[in-house]
Design a protein around this nucleic acid. Sequence first.
DNA 1: GGTCTGACTAAAT
DNA 2: GATTTAGCCAGAC
Length: 113
Amino acid sequence: MASKKKGKESDFYTDVYSVVKLIPRGRVTSYGAIAQYLGSGLSARMVGWAMHGAPTGVPAHRVVNRIGMLTGKIHFSTPTQMQQLLEKEGIEVKNDKVVKFNQHFWDPTQELL
DNA sequence: GGTCTGACTAAAT
DNA sequence: GATTTAGCCAGAC
């Protein structure tokens, strides 16, 4: 039927979480990459907004901005939580930025193609 | 109901 | 080449 919305949030959020959960360990992606993967006229900002309501189990620390900067770390319990988690997964973080970001970059439009 | 801000990105200056 | 402006959509005031 015509009804599209209900108690549950928009599928957009769920979709973002699903993609983030699919990120393999030791990899990172960008908000824009997820936005383009969903490709429904989304904007990178909405992906970040979706993370704002991300439930436990979503490795939001694996999602960084386009230049690999840990912009979202400020929303974690502690601003160092994000960096610690990334380093623990084998990702080098320096000055709040991912080292060799291009090497650790994981693009859903490429891997999930 | 209008305005501002926000976990971004790309183009223009 | 670095800085600024504009575009994106949704939530909070």
